[in-house]
Amino acid sequence: MASDLEVLPVPGGPGAAALLPHLARVLDGEAPPALPVPADDPREIDRLTATLAPGSPIEHDAVLVLATSGSTGVPKGALLTAAALRASAAATHDRLGGVGTWLLALPAHHVAGMQVLLRSVAAGTEPVVLDVRAGFDPAALPAAVAAMSGPRRYTSLVPTQLVKALADPEATAALASLDAVLLGGAATPAPLLARATAASVPVVRTYGMSETCGGCVYDGLPLDGVRLRLGDDGRVSLGGPTLAAGYRGMPDHPAFAEPGWFRTDDVGSIGEDGRLRILGRIDDAISTAGLTVVPRVVEDVVTAVPGVAECVVVGVPDERLGARVAALVVLDAGATVTDDAIREHVASELGREAVPRVVVRTAALPVRGPGKVDRAAALRRVTDAAR
């Protein structure tokens, strides 16, 4: 008989480590399947429980239901089995060179943070937890990393956290002392990766989502057992032992229509080296003056401009052009970058059609979930500025 799904309140601070014994029981089937929710966010608890139906039987012998990280619309819950979660932890440790101690620096009710706890369960190690309830403070990294035991030490971050850490020499040195810094949840700008490499930070770029137990493609190469293919339109599909069994209460969802595969909304390409490169989401493409502009490509070029730390590119509706390319940019501390410098660099690299007609500066990019750029919020900001 199927077990009923139970709510699992997940602390946002150091208390998250106390969940390890319970998570071990969940994986072993000795505790009911769990729906992780943020313990200190009643509004989000209400949103998730209203849709994902705790108190009713679980499907497909899943042990965890992890909500997708979207902050708008109706959340979907990925049905993750113990076998999939164990396969993900084993493949991750195999790729990284062995089990180790993990530093939790992300909210643990999302897949990236939860995986830090589950990998700790698999490794039999105690994670060190960075308190991020008030935001990520890179000044806290040195002490947290110093508290980690060896012989191998890992953490998982999102790009916005790495940007902040690289601005702090002591935080940078702490990250450089680790064996791997998994970086995912959002696109990693090429200049950011170059800065991390120059600082000897061992970044491993990850690609995946709740539906694949988190990252399942590392530095463009699938983990052992993970299957990857591209459709005729470049759409990425993923398969293998880390795949979710479907969505909670959505047995006919088209993303899982083909047995053994999950169809993403991402478009990618495979380079000559066999590595996957994500070009962006299918619905993010900007149609301007009859041409198609891929935001990810423009973002990489804009962040290559000296003084630009981060960037998100969106399309502002325009009656004549269909949409205008717009860029919301964050500058390095003390940097001065003109709009013309940004536009000239994009024009020289990509052509005039990709040039941002609107450039708006902000102190920080809007994010949602564990660190994904909130493009809807970015569009609102640049639209307001363009009026």
Rank of each mutant, 00 (worst) to 15 (best):
A87P: 12
T188S: 12
E349C: 13
V204S: 07
L118F: 08
L106P: 02
A91T: 14
R248W: 04
R387W: 09
E310L: 05
P366F: 09
L193N: 04
E126Q: 14
K164C: 09
L19A: 10
T242N: 08
D94W: 05
R95Q: 14
L80H: 12
E258S: 11
V367K: 08
T288G: 11
S237M: 10
T303M: 13
A146Q: 12
L66V: 15
P33N: 03
E353D: 10
K164E: 15
P42M: 09
A199V: 06
D41Q: 11
G15Q: 12
G274R: 00
F256V: 03
V132L: 04
V308H: 07
G124V: 00
S177C: 06
A50F: 04
D28N: 11
A108Y: 01
A143K: 08
P151F: 01
S56E: 13
A289T: 12
P32M: 03
L27K: 06
Y207M: 03
E349K: 14
V355E: 15
A50T: 09
L118A: 02
T49C: 11
K76V: 05
E211H: 04
V382G: 06
V111Q: 12
V158L: 07
G369Y: 10
V329C: 05
T303V: 04
A112W: 02
G290Q: 10
A285G: 01
D232A: 14
V63T: 13
A309N: 03
S237N: 02
L166A: 13
A289S: 15
E310K: 00
V316D: 05
R25N: 09
V65P: 02
R43W: 06
A323Q: 14
I282T: 10
P254Q: 02
A173E: 15
G239D: 03
V359K: 10
G334L: 02
